[in-house]
Computed example of a mutant assay.
Amino acid sequence: MKRVLITGANRGLGLELTRQYLERGDQVFAATRQPESAIDLNTLHEQYPDRLVVIGLDVTDPASLEAARKAVEAVTDGLDILINNAGILPGHPGSGLNDDPNTQYLGNLRYDDALQVFGTNAVGPLLVAQEFLGLLRAGNKSRIVSLSSGLGSLTLKASGSQYHYSASKAAMNMYMRTVAAEVGHYGLISIMVDPGWMRTDMGGTGAALNPTDSARGIIRLTDQLHAEENGSFLNWQGQHVAW
């Protein structure tokens, strides 16, 4: 049985990853900013009361990070998998920012939006990894999987939109690749994964990929990682993505 921490687990891909890990018999710590309103997570908890722990976590709040770590430590002495899934996409409902998509184009960009997106999408995963490093080092061949995006690829980026989101994912890639260089000395593996364009609240209904398939691929990829893949940028099918 793996011990898995998933951030942003209340909806979309995070919720699907939670469900699939539970279905195969693992223990999941599902983190979300507002546990009391996470209806689907709480329904899953009724099905798996012994293996699902729902915890509050705001990845930009130091006090919340510490409280979440203590909540996990109250249940287990180690983690085997950390999935950094929490993220926001400005211009979309639920981002916590202005939902007007026009704010994501040149001429309407705002400093405060940029700081919030970078704080959540780039710095957040770094601080989560830092906070839970002790538990990960105590785990069994632990993995840190940080969900990135093809929009974070400097090579592939070709659209004049999503400035903050794209840049935040590129920054996250650098943060977590740097983490990989350090935690590799402890026997841990840190990778970045493009989960694909999925039919979720963030991805929209026009996306081609079902989150069920992406989650299944990410879980398979995580299980099969080797030390030489530490620091890699891969897609959900295990193929390398251009930086």
Rank of each mutant, 00 (worst) to 15 (best):
M1T: 11
K2L: 10
K2R: 14
R3V: 04
R3T: 13
L5G: 03
N10Q: 09
N10G: 15
G12M: 09
G14N: 11
D26I: 08
Q27F: 04
V28R: 10
F29E: 02
A31P: 07
D40R: 13
D40A: 15
D40S: 14
L52V: 03
V53T: 13
V53E: 10
V54K: 07
V54P: 06
D58I: 01
D58L: 04
D58M: 03
T60A: 08
D61A: 09
P62G: 11
L65P: 10
A67R: 14
A68Q: 10
A71Y: 03
A71F: 01
G78D: 02
I81E: 03
I83E: 05
I83A: 05
G87N: 01
I88N: 09
P90F: 04
P90S: 08
S95W: 03
D100S: 03
T103C: 09
L106T: 08
L106P: 00
G107P: 09
G107E: 07
L109A: 04
L109C: 06
L109M: 05
A114L: 08
A114V: 07
Q116I: 00
F118W: 06
L126Y: 03
V128Q: 05
Q130H: 12
F132R: 08
F132S: 04
S142F: 01
G150I: 13
S153I: 00
A158P: 00
S159I: 03
S161W: 05
S161E: 12
S161V: 05
Q162T: 07
Y165V: 01
K169L: 00
A171Y: 06
M172R: 10
N173K: 12
N173G: 12
Y175T: 00
Y175A: 01
R177V: 01
G184D: 03
Y186W: 13
Y186L: 07
G187R: 13
L188R: 12
I191V: 14
I191E: 05
V193H: 13
M198H: 10
D201K: 12
G203E: 01
G204R: 09
T205P: 05
G206E: 04
G206K: 09
P211T: 01
D213A: 15
S214Q: 07
L221W: 08
D223P: 01
Q224H: 15
Q224E: 15
L225W: 14
A227K: 12
G231F: 09
S232H: 14
F233M: 06
L234G: 09
N235S: 10
N235V: 02
Q237K: 14
Q237N: 12
H240K: 12
H240C: 00
V241P: 03
W243R: 01
